[in-house]
Nucleic acid binder design. Structure first.
Lengths: 228, 228
DNA sequence: AGTTGATTGAAACGCCTGTTTGAAACAGGC
DNA sequence: GCCTGTTTCAAACAGGCGTTTCAATCAACT
């Protein structure tokens, strides 16, 4: 629950002579991502940023505006960090679906390490604030449209848009669970299984196979064939 | 001194809303669900419960223990409120899968309206605290086991446990998305479509069909609904 | 009645919060 | 040097927080 705040939780942001404004933005993003808006304190943020408490109000006015700015900052950084694949024309839809899912999982779970930017955005998704609408329009909706287009190709343009959207949400939901409820998933699945099967690449393969089978494009899930 | 409640057996059966302890528990659950642990205040809780501020510490010791108790209380209430179906022996696995999904969606989204108990539990799932492990063991894991067993039947016992668990998580993830990220879903889907297709019964049919198709038990998605 | 122990109540205690203050430090142009 | 504008700093502010105190109240038993 972490009501007691450890003040040494994050090492102070390196004072590499950057703009104090940027240092605050960076520290604030990490702090907000970790503790949420209410529980994060401007004192901890300033401590991590290596600036005086007054700096937040000097540069951003108040805590709320600092929060909004840091969400936008994080979101822009993350978009540049993990862009969508750029498929050459003629790439099979199944391949594109797999790449898309792998990309989404990579962005959410992170091959390298769970990035604080995603945590911050996840908070917005789960409990929207003013910054959320911008996030959806600039970042989520375009990705959603790409996925719908892939599914449309995959189904041979036989399904209506609403049905495509439902399938798209089914795919997103599967990835989303691991990001949002990862701790609970870890409690439900044996540790060794978690380490071997619930990694981004394995999950991408599973989700893709699941979708292809459901669409009748691939075979049913592994193993024996069944009589309908 | 923190006096623990002496003996529940000697009191003349608490008249539901008259027991201060229960009133606090009720108010606390709603307040925690709405604002989260950190942002909820014991003063607001006591105001809503119509008791003195000191009552929280008198009955529960401190805020944290009140929180844990209220989570457990809400969880127990919700389980009794929407219990799992009790299938007669011989019920087809496909039927049971549909019922299970419908039950889960009903519990999460609420046929009537999203109850505060679910919000409270969702907070625990998304950002686990001490109360989470208990929640998983008492409530989530048994449900998870039921789903896995259904899928095992459905696959004709041809799939290994880890694979069954992955499929189960895929199903849960689809329901979970609507509960946890419902606001964003509402932004991505046209309003009329949301009202007609993204209702608990419609979603239950979709998720079930999706799973059956993936398992090769039903036809691929373009087909018609198989479950009554 | 009187005594006892469990509950309640209003007020206060520290502590921590976001924010403000006013002076000090710094820069660059004259 | 002086002046001017921007940036930093320690300190303080007012308010809210969880928690504690202690006297008052209540219910039940002797």
């Amino acid at each position: 629950m972490a009501t007691v705040r450890s003040h040494a939780e994050h090492e102070p942001v390196p004072k590499t002579a950057e703009d104090p404004r940027d240092r605050i933005l960076l520290a604030a993003g990490q702090e907000f991502a970790e503790h949420g808006y209410e529980a994060a304190t401007v004192r901890d943020i300033c401590l991590a940023a290596g600036v005086n408490v007054a700096a937040v109000n000097y540069y951003f006015g108040d805590k709320r505006r600092l929060y909004i700015e840091s969400v936008k900052h994080a979101h822009e950084a993350r978009v540049k960090q993990v862009p969508l694949p750029d498929w050459p024309p003629g790439t099979p839809a199944a391949q594109r679906l797999h790449d898309f899912v792998a990309n989404m999982l990579e962005r959410m779970l992170g091959f390298s390490q769970p990035p604080w930017q995603v945590r911050l955005m996840m908070r917005e998704v789960l409990h929207p604030t003013d910054a959320c609408r911008e996030l959806v329009e600039d970042y989520i909706r375009p990705h959603f449209a790409v996925l719908v287009a892939i599914l449309d190709d995959l189904a041979g343009h036989t399904l209506a848009e609403p049905e495509l959207r439902r399938i798209a949400l089914s795919i997103i939901g599967q990835c989303f669970l691991y990001r949002a409820a990862g701790d609970v998933v870890a409690m439900l699945v044996p540790a060794d299984e978690l380490a071997s099967l619930h990694t981004p690449p394995q999950l991408a393969a599973h989700v893709t196979r699941y979708a292809l089978a459901a669409l009748g494009v691939g075979r049913p899930l592994p193993g024996k064939e069944r009589i309908p």
